[in-house]
Design a binder for these strands. Structure first.
Lengths: 339, 339
DNA sequence: TTAATAAACTAAACCGATTTAGTAAATATA
DNA sequence: TATATTTACTAAATCGGTTTAGTTTATTAA
């Protein structure tokens, strides 16, 4: 079975490429191709398993029916799950997905954006490093359809789907306060990400709103590429040092996992000695000992809504309605904060 | 900054598209374009941020510098991690990656294969449903470059990178035997996947080789889409029922997680009442209580080697050397099998 | 001095689709 | 009966690159 082209169909049926193309694109009726001819074309195409060359089609149409997805790291279960939902939703609308990881590197992200544009993706979904204002602005100015997810640029008006980082962390902190914890530590990642800033602000707001002081010694922001090593010191210092916190808020799932690992190594009991709580969760947080209370992010909704907004944008590039969605996290109460 | 095309460069510099194209593809020297002209072209292209339309390029060249990746489910951390390593390695060779999930459905897999071919991917990496012999054979007959990962077709000679499922599980079972477990259960997924068959055979071989009988009642294969529900009965039956196994081999990470969840619900102590061991592991298996002993798959090597084989295949379609790699798993001994 | 060769290019075809601007024949209208 | 309209198509341009087969001018060899 050899590959068959539009031209082959046209020749075999003694028709023009035009007629064949129109019919195969479901535009036979509006172009007055007779029912009989339409049937002949459709039958022949099906029998010979015709499939258009998408490169040729894309070149001609200036579109590719492909969505580009840029995430920091596809092997992070959080982004992998988002990718999954994006893929499903995209398929519903007839789009394929090309993905790439930026590794939190702005230069790579820049490169990926342009590489994807060259590949004629019809739109982009970006979980940005948030160090790339320049190119995001260019996309916006060029009126190119895109949606930011997970991270957004507070100073640029764009489509985005993020979660309520502030509210989620405030909620988590209040949960700890409600469980009579009074010296609450905060372990995060050193970063300019607004998401992480908001998580800190949420933590601080919960404290002050409830009449407690924010104690800078209770806050520790670790190096994003060296957090595993730094965690040991952070935990020791906070829990065993002079501070003696009785709870720790972790701002990501991998920090919580890493933190718990250290706590176990040091033989510190959770939650009796110290309670822990995590923003976002891994698949097995319910199996861990103790099961970790976590604020779960709605990855399904994030993926779905991002695609919906994007496809909408692609379809009617004229109507510029910025869609700014802030989704709520959900606190899953388990045992790591006491009963 | 408006988009600039090859034609624009040619016109601006009073040259032909040919000259510009050759120079930009690093073939100026071999085509005797003067150094001076080359410099002018390169400078102009850089200054104006020229980037070729990959659709046009792909159409012309018949290739896309893109690798297609088909996995059962990108949100499974196992495949997500493989995808990550594939992406990195592919980039090293200048390839992008398009991925899609088949959801273990042969019809979807078929559709994805052809959809990717239409998009002119230069090669495919497939973690197949293994229910699609027909299309894999067609790819092979068409001499199209592809590599199977994780799952392969025992009856078709192809490139593949898989792990030693038999040996890995045999090893796991022997570990349990070494820890004085004598009634070893086996919980797997009902499936035609050779990988799962091999895991069962490895388990059985370990038993018989060591003088124990294979007890069919100790083996339970659950429905792949309903394993969570069925797990409850399986565990109850095996551990609390008349069989009273003292250990369970789980053939996937999600089965192990699910099984442990049930054990905890039933208040069954691990490893004192029953030991558990898992083929493949989740990120947090070391944090779970008890930490789960698991046979770790070399996802990095699997991704890397798949890309290397594939790129090699793409580069010299003539030399047909089938690469059949069987990688070894590594047993990470933790506490779920006793000390 | 002239033919052969090399250097430095270019025109036009091509990849495989879509689309614009027609056309010939059949039918309807005046 | 002559003109207008409709039906059912088609030829050729186009998308933006790559590539084949030359061409012109300068240089070298005989």
């Amino acid at each position: 079975m050899k590959k068959i082209f539009l031209k082959d169909i046209a020749q075999a049926l003694n028709l023009s490429k035009t007629a064949v193309s129109l019919v195969l694109n479901n535009r036979g009726d509006e172009n007055k191709i007779s029912k009989d001819t339409q049937k002949r074309i459709l039958d022949f195409a099906k029998k010979n398993n015709y499939r258009p060359n998408q490169m040729a089609r894309g070149l001609s149409l200036g579109k590719s029916e492909t969505i580009g997805l840029i995430v920091p790291n596809i092997s992070d279960i959080f982004y992998a799950r988002i990718a999954h939902f994006i893929e499903i939703k995209a398929k519903e609308f007839g789009y394929n997905v090309v993905f790439s990881s930026s590794n939190e590197n702005a230069a790579i992200e820049k490169e990926l954006i342009y590489s994807m544009l060259n590949r004629q993706v019809d739109g982009l979904i970006i979980a940005s490093t948030q160090k790339n204002e320049e190119d995001i602005l260019k996309l916006k100015e060029a009126n190119f359809p895109f949606v930011l997810i997970d991270r957004y640029y507070p100073d640029i008006k764009t489509n985005y789907v993020i979660v309520d980082n502030f509210g989620g962390t405030k909620n988590m902190t209040e949960h700890l306060l409600g469980n009579r914890r009074r010296k609450i530590g905060f372990i995060s990642i050193k970063s300019q990400l607004d998401a992480l800033l908001q998580r800190r602000l949420g933590y601080e707001q919960a404290l002050t709103e409830n009449g407690f002081k924010v104690e800078p010694n209770y806050i520790n922001e670790l190096d994003p590429f060296d957090y595993q090593d730094e965690m040991k010191g952070a935990i020791k210092d906070m829990v065993q040092g002079s501070h003696k916190v009785d709870a720790v808020v972790f701002t990501t799932h991998y920090l919580a996992a890493s933190g718990l690992r250290e706590l176990k190594l040091l033989g510190i009991e959770v939650p009796s000695e110290v309670a822990i709580i995590s923003f976002d969760e891994l698949g097995a947080f319910d199996l861990v000992e103790p099961p970790i209370t976590a604020s779960k992010q709605p990855v399904d909704a994030m993926g779905n809504e991002a695609v919906e907004i994007l496809v909408n944008e692609i379809d009617k590039k004229n109507l510029k309605i910025e869609n700014e969605r802030v989704l709520q996290t959900k606190l899953l109460i388990r045992k790591s904060c006491g009963v």
